[in-house]
Structure formats: C-alpha cells, structure tokens
Design a protein around this nucleic acid. Structure first.
Length: 257
DNA sequence: ATGGTAGCACGGCTA
C-alpha cells in the first residue's frame, strides 16, 4: 500500500504534474492540499481517466483538500464530523484496513495574527477529532500539510527561524499532543538525523539554495509501524517545471495480512 | 535587502 501527500498549490494549474506523478509513482492513495477549487470544478473525470477515483472538499480560491485513490473510498467524510467548517481543510476515507485523514493545517501567518489563534484552535479541534477517529479505526494514518516544523532538525536555519510561526512552541506542543495519541512521524522514525525539507518558499531563491522546512508529514499509528517499508520526499518534483512550492511525501506500507 | 514569487482573480490577499 503506497500512500502519499502533496500540497499542489492549485490543482487547476498543477493537474498535468499530478497525473504525471500518479503515472510515475503509482500510489494507491494520494492526498492533496491547496486544490483551490470549488467542488463543481474538480477534475474528477480527467483523474478517473488517469485511473483514480476522487473525493474532494473545496472552496473558491483558497484551501481545498482531496484524496485520489485506485480503489473507491469507503466511509468518506469531508470536514469535521459534527459542526460545519468555513474553511475546507480536512477530508477522510478508508481504504482496505487503513483510515486516512488528510489535513491542511492553517498557516497562521504570524504570531500576532488572528490567523495564528485560529491555527491553534484548529489544532485543538483536530486533536479531539483524531481521538474520535482512533476509537473507531485502529489503523490510522494522519497526513498532509501541517504548517509546523516538528523541531530544529526540520528547519534549514533553526537559529534564524527561532520561534516564529511554523516553529513556535505552542504549535509544536499541539502537534506533540496529537502524536501522544499514538501517532508517529514515519519520516523521522526512519531517518532520525536527516535534515530534509518538504517545502521551499518560492521567494528569495530558497529552493536553489536548498533552504526549506519539513512541514508535510505522515503520521502513522503504532500498529502500522511494523509495516513501514520506506518513506521518501520527492525533491525532484519540486525541481521540475512550474512546480508547487511543496514536494510530495510518500509512504510504502506492507500489505496487511 | 522586512524583500523575494506564485496563485487567485484583476486589487489585494494568502502563503
């Protein structure tokens, strides 16, 4: 079972790159963030021609999440379970024995912004939601664009970034709190000392100088860890023509028995 | 260098 996540920064612009990536990597499941598309404009037909079913939860211009899959999803859920959400940042589905939660965590903009307070509230809400989902689905993978670098190993210049947004203690603690429910950062588990990034700002030649952050994460519950074969960050796709500012991250799991 | 670039939508916001 191959499960991947990719913040595409507009699926309308990136559709050729996405279908190319599906062809090259052949994932069973690909979670997308920042599709920036209303549901009425989602290219489900073109993706089906490429061999993938879609579930999607979008809005005009901002946010938007989707899950593409070889097999049709079951137990699909968009947004939170009970209340509505104004911003399309979460969708979930089950494939085989695996529950997949795809998130686009708010960026937060800056520590003094109302958007940062919203980010912290959103993470609290996610904590509760993950707790509920784990009770129902023991084999769970939580993945997506977390807009949080877990620690200094995940930042090209931790001194310069300090405790700014994406690296602040409060959001890192919120992430740790969610992980304390029994979820493990599979990339970090596999590569304890590797400094690797999943996002490079378009500005200031950040990619050219390899100055990035690792904010796109795949968290797997303990029961799945023995099945982890490989985790990779596809830096080549960030280097390609007209790229998203994020690289895809891919997890390969052994099939369940 | 408190900028820079990209996307949405056509001015200014978001990242």
């Amino acid at each position: 079972m191959k499960i991947a996540t990719w913040n595409v920064n507009s699926l309308k612009v990136r559709l050729p790159q996405v279908t190319g990536w599906l062809e090259a990597w052949q994932p069973d499941v690909l979670c997308l963030q920042e599709t920036k598309l209303e549901d009425a404009h989602f290219p489900a037909g073109q993706l089906l021609e490429a061999g993938y079913h879609s579930i999607f939860h979008g809005q005009p211009a901002y946010n938007g999440v989707a899950i593409l899959s070889r097999e049709p999803a079951v137990a699909v859920q968009t947004g939170w379970s009970v209340e509505g959400d104004a911003q399309a940042r979460l969708c979930s589905a089950t494939f085989g024995d695996i529950r997949v939660l795809n998130v686009y965590v708010p960026n937060g903009q800056s520590l003094d912004s109302e958007k940062y307070a919203y980010k912290l509230r959103w993470l609290e809400r996610l904590h509760t939601h993950v707790e509920e989902e784990l009770a129902r689905w023991p084999a769970l993978v939580l993945l997506g664009d977390f807009n949080i670098a877990p620690d200094g190993r995940d930042v090209y210049d931790p001194e310069a970034w300090g405790e700014d947004v994406l690296c602040s203690p409060a959001e890192r603690q919120a992430l740790q709190g969610i992980q304390s429910l029994g979820l493990h950062d599979v990339f970090r588990q596999q590569y304890p000392d590797t400094r690797a990034w999943s996002w490079w700002d378009y500005r200031a030649g950040r990619f050219r100088r390899d100055q990035g952050l690792r904010i796109d994460l795949i968290l797997a519950c303990s029961t799945l860890l023995p099945r982890v074969c490989n985790v990779s960050i596809d830096r080549e796709t960030r280097a390609a023509e007209r790229p998203s500012d994020h690289a895809p991250v891919c997890l390969l799991l052994e099939d369940g028995s």
